[in-house]
């Protein structure tokens, strides 16, 4: 089951340049929360602070508190431990090109020294691929086909399967459809809808219709600040901040 993401007073920097200012928000468990805003406004940085990918960039740092359910992300948890609870799907599909489809999905478990017999592993791989709606397309040559030989949309679903295989509580998606065509995008959106039953999803998107379609809650970022965080229906019909309204009606951005 998914758990909530509670963020309090999160600030983030790249060197001396502050990228996030005092962000406080909670993403509800088993719901999808979308983050929108113009390029460079800090949405991606915010998401990367949640699984501590932000700190892998030299000179980058973050302060504040992030809790995944009851687990404090920045206190008493190592980054690898945290990332096992928080799956992530990136903007550009990044399957491991030297691994087969099967090994791509199993990679997270193998990395973390998960002990299992071949049968258990087969089950997990099959379940993850089914959950990512990719099973039917790849089941015939799971171990022969390389992860890189799939189409872009399939690769992205493979990456989702890879993230799901370690049974995270939260799945972060950083513009998962921006490199995909409309049909693949539709498939991923359908998938997000189903995944909500078991996971909490936080999705960054430039596509406001996508936010409206998949997310119950939406946050609007501008220049590193969270301007408005509301129910999606409210933010797209009666936003309370003028800047939000300007953005979603296309006056800037």
């Amino acid at each position: 089951m998914g758990v909530s993401i509670q963020v309090k007073n999160l600030n983030a920097w790249f060197g001396k340049k502050q990228a996030l200012f005092d962000i406080t928000m909670t993403a509800a468990a088993n719901h999808c929360t979308a983050l929108i805003g113009p390029s460079g406004c800090g949405k991606s940085t915010f998401v990367r602070c949640i699984n501590r990918m932000h700190e892998t960039i030299p000179d980058a740092k973050a302060t504040g508190s992030v809790k995944i359910g009851e687990v404090d992300a920045y206190n008493g948890t190592s980054a690898p431990q945290l990332r096992r609870r928080v799956g992530m799907v990136f903007q550009k599909p990044n399957p491991f090109p030297t691994m087969s489809v099967y090994d791509n999905v199993a990679a997270g478990l193998k990395l973390n020294r998960f002990r299992s017999n071949a049968k258990q592993m087969d089950e997990i791989v099959e379940r993850s691929l089914k959950n990512a709606a990719l099973w039917d397309e790849v089941k015939d040559d799971l171990k022969k086909k390389s992860g890189a030989s799939l189409s872009g949309g399939q690769q992205q679903r493979l990456c989702i399967a890879r993230a799901l295989a370690v049974e995270p509580e939260v799945v972060l998606m950083d513009e998962p459809c921006s490199a995909l065509d409309p049909i693949s995008t539709g498939k991923i959106e359908d998938l997000i809808f189903q995944l909500k039953q078991n996971y909490t999803i936080l999705i960054v998107t430039h596509n406001m219709q996508q936010a409206a379609r998949v997310a119950e809650y939406t946050g609007f970022f501008l220049l590193g600040k969270l301007i408005e965080f509301e129910k999606t229906t409210k933010i797209f019909t009666t936003p309370s901040d003028k800047r939000t309204e300007d953005y979603i009606t296309g006056r800037f951005g």
């Binding site: 491991f96 997270g108 990395l111």
Partner: peptide, 26 residues
Amino acid sequence: PSHQREGVLALGATRWEMIRVGVLRN
């Protein structure tokens, strides 16, 4: 590419595992 490194890190890899799986293997 850095997205390969990040892909491995995001799965909960330690630094050495990231280098082994995400970099050396590629």
